[in-house]
Design a protein around this nucleic acid. Sequence first.
DNA 1: TTAGGGTTAG
Length: 781
Amino acid sequence: MIHYVGSGHGLSSLAPCQKEMQRCLLERTVGFPENLNWFTIQHAKPRPIPPSIVKSFTCAAKSFFATAHNGASFSESLQLYSSLIQQCIGIKSITDITKIQSHALKRGFHHSLGNKLIDAYLKCGSVVYARKVFDEVPHRHIVAWNSMIASYIRNGRSKEAIDIYQRMVPDGILPDEFTFSSVFKAFSDLGLVHEGQRAHGQSVVLGVGVSNVFVGSALVDMYAKFGKMRDARLVSDQVVGKDVVLFTALIVGYSHHGEDGESLQVFRNMTKKGIEANEYTLSSVLVCCGNLEDLTSGRLIHGLIVKAGLESAVASQTSLLTMYYRCGLVDDSLKVFKQFINPNQVTWTSVIVGLVQNGREEIALLKFRQMLRSSITPNSFTLSSVLRACSSLAMLEQGKQIHAIVMKFGLDIDKYVGAALIDFYGKCGSTEIARSVFNGLLEVDVVSVNSMIYSYAQNGFGHEALQLFSGMKDTGLEPNNVTWLGVLSACNNAGLLEEGCHIFSSARNSGNIELTKDHYACMVDLLGRAGRLKEAEMLINQVNISDVVIWRTLLSACRIHGDVEMAKRVMNRVIDLAPEDGGTHVLLSNLYASTGNWSKVIEMKSAMREMRLKKNPAMSWVDVEREIHTFMAGDWSHPNFRDIREKLEELIEKVKELGYVPDTRFVLQDLDEEKKIRSLYYHSEKLAVAFALWRSNYKNTTIRILKNLRVCGDCHTWMKFVSKIVGRDIIARDVKRFHHFRNGLCSCGDYCWKSCSNSISPWELEAARLVIRLLLWQPCG
DNA sequence: TTAGGGTTAG
């Protein structure tokens, strides 16, 4: 039943309406002079509007003109409005629809056209206007309800979609298969498990179950997104006439929940049934191959993509390059990337991520620059990855430039980028900046807190890490595996034995954390460094973990405390677990060397030669004026070696005056005392510091050193003295942690070099000597 | 006139 509303719809009102329509149409066809009549419009040649549109408008107007004169019936007028609205959809003009709506409203046609108008607004992308009409008109067709729900979901407004869905039954409208195929996504988007299940129940009651493959695949997708793969499978099994979409939803579901093998099985079943995979399926299956590092299947899918002619499809190409880099084939990944004619943001990001994950950080940064040059905007994915590249290379200046780009795009409040920034500044030794980034985050989650705890941990700020950890409870954040490890490592790096033991037992007793070998390794390190070797050994035996890293950690502690007997025992365990491992032999050889057992050292070295094991040469890198310089112990190949040597001699003389005494215990070769002292002087980190000071004599910048092994104990003392005499900060990042040298002291509090045995070690004596010297040296008051 | 699945990060 169609209702007329208002009274102005008769023939008498047609003339002004005609004028109104003429005005609307004239405005639509921009460029027409206003004094033209309908006849001239038919023959006029508009400038900016494409001829096809003008033609359609002219025909519509002609028809309206004719009906107006002949006395248009209600249905004729309605038809004309519908036709005009249809044309507006064609040119996606919301303005024109609004004009037609206002015209129709004056003539009382508004409500009769309600569903048409809703459809038109939605097709032109205006959910707001559509909703306005939806709320105004009394007789909404089921199509209007379904269209509103689908549009809200497409626009990421799932809550409003659910509101509309929940109003259907009270309004006397029963949801149909179109409703359910849309609405389940709204529940999964919002993570509303119970509500989603209830809607599933309602669909069964209404008889709109899985007989429809659209409803079935939407349900499979919803259950998969909830992580309920068993339910997803049960629904899928009931669907008759399964299609490629349903299978893809299942494949993606399994993959997202770590069951990539099952995904591949589903894919095989699908192809067995003769269902052809499309671009969506193939991209998803490639992700599974990448996650499984299953290159054979990955290459097979690559073949299928070529066969299906989908090589140029962007998503499958992106997945292809992702699959190759996850399988470690960076060059193949780059080959795929080269085939892109116009790489998009995701493609650029994928290739950058792949390079960073495979340790090709420098090329990743190069690609990032190319991306910016091709005017592709980086997103939070891209920026967090390039920041990771800068962290790995300790490239402070580059990272700062990327931080500026982050600020430009307003992404410094993003939790992913924020965590990457915190990690970056932490790894570059700038804990204060890391903290200010942390404080500026819009949303703090467990990952950003973990990043901050790690920054503190790496830089020896144990108490700060503990404080942040205890504050987590107030913010309602639950610590995870990574948090416990971070805070344990903070205690370890700062030598907080008691606190570390307390944290470890809390983690063990918390009940909801599964401790991994990393947690145990950290605890063994803490106990071992503190000299509680027996306890450390007992802990390993107690948990019965056969992991080479844990035993090697204990071996390293044996070396610090000179426990040769335990070291031999531990070494046997290490060799059992990793017979080819060179590091173990180096450790034992160093242990013999530090106890002066040179015959054993020679024995070990010849054993290592036979096994063709090599000790990694110690290397240091220093960043001076954005240029990286590499140094090796006793290597004078640097073009400025004369200046470096001169600077080094000068520094050594000055630090000696302040009390520096070379500690030859750190020379692991059998040399006479004088030669030992000379070999200490030319350690790579000393060369790097001397070079940096020579090149930047009159500047007050921080010197940043990166070392591939741990900083040697003698160099550690030497750098403390140097920081005092030159009044400059030195930050040394070694393989384990950071050392901030400032004004004669180090942030590690010398914990790394302190022996915890009962007798006073030479190091403690040296530290005491240093403190006295500094006290004397500093002016009082 | 209305409907379902995919690619990149800690």
